[in-house]
């Protein structure tokens, strides 16, 4: 099987400081990869390099495009990368404000990606927006409300709907449950898991919350000081960690 994303020796430094160093992995269709590590471990740098928000110093990010097969994303032109960013890729920010247009209605937020790829029928755009709001459990009556009138959890669900409406194949998530109440987190995790399974999505989830990756991720990558120090099946890494740092990380989690 062809990997959907093939990352080779990705390196990013900030001056003399290492952001992430020599990261390689393959992501297969339908897989969810969790990247864990504490603040400053390089996990967000890595995610931003993968998603094209940051330019890495070295390495390759090869994506299996629909039309042309495997292409190095870093060698694509800006228009190609942007097109990818609003069709096959999606990015869910930790703070929904970074991923939503706060002055535009929920329906407009969901419809934007459709209009960006050429949808020009208001009724159809609105029907799709309604459908997607339903899928993320936002009532149809809220379609014309602005996200500023929504709770944090609703905003995050709206951001997910806005991202998934064009049927992407790869979703990047940066601490998708960060800053949410625990009960809201559970609901969101359940939602993401259901969508991932039903749509056959591949996802890369960056988080420092081990409970989140246990529920969401098939595989885990543990990062420290910009390096990948351990990878494996999620439950194996969490239940039988090998690296000293991973053991410390796992044993530091408070048990409920």
């Amino acid at each position: 099987m062809m990997p959907l994303l093939d990352v080779r020796s990705l390196t990013k430094t900030y001056g003399g400081r290492i952001g992430c160093a020599d990261v390689s992995f393959r992501l297969y269709p339908g897989e969810v990869l969790g990247i864990v590590g504490e603040s400053g471990s390089g996990k967000s740098t890595l995610l931003n390099c993968l998603a094209g928000h940051l330019l890495p110093d070295a390495g390759r990010v090869i994506f299996d495009t629909r039309a042309e097969g495997p292409r190095d994303v870093l060698e694509m032109s800006e228009p190609e990368r942007r097109m990818l960013g609003r069709t096959d890729w999606a990015f869910v920010h930790q703070n929904p404000r970074d991923g939503l247009r706060m002055r535009i209605s929920a329906g407009g937020n969901v419809g934007e990606r459709l209009m960006a790829v050429g949808a020009r029928h208001y009724g159809e755009i609105r029907a799709q927006a309604t459908d997607w709001l339903g899928r993320v459990e936002i009532g149809e009556t809220r379609i014309d409300d602005r996200p500023s009138a929504f709770s944090g959890g609703m905003q995050q669900r709206l951001q997910i709907a806005r991202n998934l409406v064009t049927g992407p194949r790869l979703v990047f998530m940066d601490e998708p449950t960060g800053g949410l109440d625990v009960s809201v987190q559970a609901r969101l995790l359940d939602l993401i898991r259901g969508l991932v399974r039903r749509m056959g999505l591949s996802a890369i989830v960056v988080t420092h919350d081990l409970a989140v990756v246990r529920l969401l991720a098939d595989r885990l990558m543990v990062m420290k000081d910009g390096q990948v120090i351990e990878t494996g099946l999620t439950d194996q890494v969490l239940d039988d960690p090998q690296a000293p740092y991973t053991q410390l990380l796992v044993s530091s989690v408070l048990q409920v």
Binding site: G232, L233, D235, Q236, D239, D240, Q242
Partner: peptide, 9 residues
Amino acid sequence: MRILYGNYL
């Protein structure tokens, strides 16, 4: 059991 399941290395 856990090794058989791939849960332990």
